[in-house]
């Protein structure tokens, strides 16, 4: 099993568009959408759901008002201001620390399981997919990303797939780490903006820590060629192969409007710009596939 993770420091730089395009080029592949905060891959791939399961987060305090005497100890001791005037719990403030459960002299407080989101196993026109949906106020956790990856592995087993393609979460925190550990290759997508190079550096620090082979790609390189050159120079110095520079192109939006990958869109639109864009991605995928088989 070979696993590729696609990450970028910041959201909104085209990671999902690229993952979707790869999915229509690769064969024997399972998709793992680990961008659980705003899971957009399903909007293009239209998954048919096979199985949905709840994922539990930190627990939530609950006060039994029949036992509560209103002494207020819980409200005083709670550091998160989660106990309201009427001795109910504000679920958005409660961090499940359980201090109230031991502080209550009447044993009126207990912890209840809290559902933080759903993990979904699906089938798409390009193969199986594992993804997730977070509930309002819940945060992506390493645990949730890990469950998505475990389901992707199971799907790969069942459908005899060779590759797992991971659409990573934004940032460099725990969810990203959970998305890249144990992968064979990481593709960092960058863009030539004020924060682009900074985000790229942080992402590369992370993959270096884990000793995962890393390659990079610049999206919308032509909106600021000077910044793109800076990114190129940085990659050269850091020994990170820069595999492709994608131009700023409206085809990405046009394809999205049709709920298609850019590869599918280029195939039927016949627009020369779209075909050229699709070819760059096709070459990029070729490079990645080669590197993925090399790492074995």
């Amino acid at each position: 099993m070979r696993q590729l993770a696609i990450i970028s420091g910041k959201g909104g730089c085209g990671k999902t568009t690229l993952t979707a395009a790869f999915s229509s080029l690769s064969e024997n592949t399972v998709l793992a959408d680990c961008d659980v905060d705003a899971s957009d891959l399903p909007l293009i791939l239209k998954p048919q759901v096979l199985k949905t399961e709840d994922c539990l987060g930190l627990e939530l305090a609950s006060i039994d008002l029949k036992l509560c005497t209103g002494c207020g100890i819980c409200r005083e001791i709670c550091r998160f201001g989660a106990v309201l005037e009427n001795f109910t719990i504000n679920p958005y403030s409660c961090e499940g620390c359980a201090v109230c459960t031991v502080a209550c002299p009447e044993n009126a407080v207990s912890l209840m399981p809290r559902v933080s989101g759903q993990v979904i196993s699906s089938i798409t026109r390009f193969g199986p997919m594992a993804h997730a949906k977070l509930d309002t106020g819940e945060e992506a956790s390493g645990k949730l990303v890990n469950v998505v990856r475990k389901r992707a592995l199971e799907l790969a087993d069942r459908h005899s797939c060779k590759f797992i393609l991971i659409d990573g979460p934004p940032g460099t925190g725990c969810p990203v780490i959970a998305a890249i550990t144990g992968t064979d290759l990481v593709l960092v997508l960058s863009e030539p903006t004020v924060s682009g190079l900074h985000d790229l550096k942080r992402a590369i620090e992370l993959t270096a820590h884990f000793r995962i082979p890393t390659v990079a790609c610049i999206n919308k390189y032509d909106i600021n060629e000077k910044k793109s050159l800076e990114i190129e120079a940085f990659c050269r110095e850091a020994g990170i192969p820069l595999l492709a520079c994608l131009p700023y192109a409206d085809i990405t939006t046009e394809a999205m409007m049709e709920e298609e990958t850019v590869i599918e869109y280029a195939a039927h639109s016949g627009d020369p710009g779209a075909v050229e864009f699709a070819n760059i991605i096709r070459n990029l995928w070729g490079e990645i596939e080669m590197r993925l088989s090399d790492t074995s």
Partner: peptide, 10 residues
Amino acid sequence: CHGCGGCSFV
């Protein structure tokens, strides 16, 4: 650590 103070309490 979230600073809940539970450890010192127990």
